[in-house]
Amino acid sequence: MSVQHVAEGISPFLKELIEDTPKGERIMHCLQCGSCGGSCPNSADMDHTPRKLFAMIMANQRNEVLAANTQWCCVSCYLCTTRCPQEIPITDLMYALKRMAIAEGKSGGTNAPALAKTFTDLVDRYGRSYELGIAGLYHLLNRPVAMAKMGPMGLSMFAKGRMAILPTKIDKIDQLQAIINKARELSK
């Protein structure tokens, strides 16, 4: 996260992104080679491929970048990251862009922020993820039509004993929540 060798006068958005991403300063070394977009299984659906997005970041186009669907197309497969000849942690930069977009209420037209919020809230509450809780809360609130289509599969999963009706709660949930609260305080 060091910005010491980042020149003064660079795009403020670039600086902000670097500060929010472990090893984010590697983005300064982007060659615009496009290996990232060429590797990505979802680049065809992106508003802008990572290569273009990085150029937009350098050009301080904050609003356009955070409104894009690019970061939400990223499923964290890390292929771009391991292929990048400049060792730019592209997947981690996508996570940082997701966090910034969420903070601005932007979702690139997807329900991904709602899914992340539902999942995270359940972990904070129980210490474990809870598939039925995610399916119920997230889909009911955000995608009721899709939920209906998922019904038969859900029933099959129940029949095979692969979906729990009740969540599991860890014993020391107080300890986990104390850690979470402290971390939230430090990340402000």
Binding site: D20, S76, Y95, A96, R99, R128, I170, L176, A183, R184
Partner: peptide, 20 residues
């Protein structure tokens, strides 16, 4: 043990996800 946060927690808060 608690949940690893999957990919979801890291799109909320890097430090908290890492602490979890």
């Amino acid at each position: 043990w608690n949940c690893c946060g999957a990919t979801e927690y890291f799109s909320q808060d890097e430090l908290t996800a890492s602490a979890v």
